[in-house]
């Protein structure tokens, strides 16, 4: 995306830290809400820097999986480890979470919202410089002083992405972050995500209902059904990937067939 690169000539990581990536390990993870068993004995390992997408029918527990990794839910059994450390309570700076809605604080200007993703206590000038860099990376260099109410849905989600990546987190958790966007904006955001992931090298775990999105972005696509992983599909296509390619279409067919057969 030319405008993004021109807006940010030094496209290194947004902080001075070297790019880092976390591993994620789930061991016999279970979660039940009351009588309803959502995840059952699910085990999974994610390598540092890997991009993993999780697909599944709605209600299959894929969002719960993500919320467990983020520490927003407490497992009923098993463990979650990020970089070898068990997750207890909110995962904090080790991971950042992007939601389906942008969840910007309406009473903070765009750059103040981005600053939420940065450690508190930074000098003002440094903070502003870092938030401006983060906004430039997502293609919104000139909206830092705006109120969120003035932004479009796609722009809000870009700000949310800038907030999530501002402190160069080792793990980015994405809970259907593009589900509410129109097709064109979604395609733009997918390219942006792919670029930022390649530049910064963080580990990414994406939950989506969009099979094509999963195949465009991920190294590996997992299908969750009845609370466990029923398909583990490596995506060996070269990057950057193209939406129209025959290989992608073939994989999409495979994945859709598996998805439609799920729960039967």
């Amino acid at each position: 995306m030319a405008y993004r690169l021109s807006a940010n000539p030094h496209h290194s990581s947004m902080t001075d830290q070297p790019p880092s990536a976390a591993s994620v390990t789930l061991q016999s993870l279970s979660k039940a809400f009351g009588d309803r068993q959502v995840l059952e004995e699910l085990s999974l390992g994610i390598e540092p820097g890997e991009f993993v997408a999780v697909v599944g029918k709605s209600g299959c527990g894929k969002s719960t999986l993500l919320r467990l990794v983020a520490g927003l839910e407490v497992p009923t059994g098993g463990t979650v480890q990020v970089d070898g450390k068990p997750v207890r309570g909110v995962v904090g700076n080790a991971a950042r979470l992007m939601f389906q809605d942008a969840r910007l604080l309406p009473w903070k200007r765009v750059h103040e919202n981005v600053a939420l993703g940065l450690p508190p206590g930074l000098p003002r000038a440094r903070l502003r410089q870092m938030t401006d860099n983060a906004l430039a990376q997502v293609g919104l260099p000139d909206r830092s002083g705006d109120w969120p109410a003035l932004l479009s849905g796609g722009q809000r989600q870009r700000v949310a992405l800038a907030r999530a990546l501002a402190a160069a987190p080792p793990l980015l958790l994405l809970d259907e972050p593009l589900g509410a966007l129109d097709a064109l904006t979604r395609a733009e955001m997918q390219d942006l995500l792919a670029d930022l992931w390649r530049e910064q090298g963080f580990t990414a775990l994406l939950v989506t209902h969009d099979v094509e999105e999963a195949l465009l972005l991920a190294d590996r696509v997992l299908l969750i059904d009845n609370g466990t992983v029923t398909l583990n599909l490596p995506v060996l296509l070269p990057r950057p990937r193209h939406r129209g390619s025959a290989e992608l279409a073939a994989l999409k067919e495979t994945l859709l067939t598996a998805l439609l057969g799920a729960g039967a």
Partner: peptide, 27 residues
């Protein structure tokens, strides 16, 4: 509630959560 959850996941709690989320939201 979704804003509160977001703020918590970004490490805000106690007075910071009150000052930056609850109070401005209640004004």
């Amino acid at each position: 509630q979704s804003l509160i959850e977001m703020a918590r996941s970004y490490g805000l709690g106690g007075t910071a959560l009150f000052r930056q989320v609850l109070l401005p939201g209640a004004i």
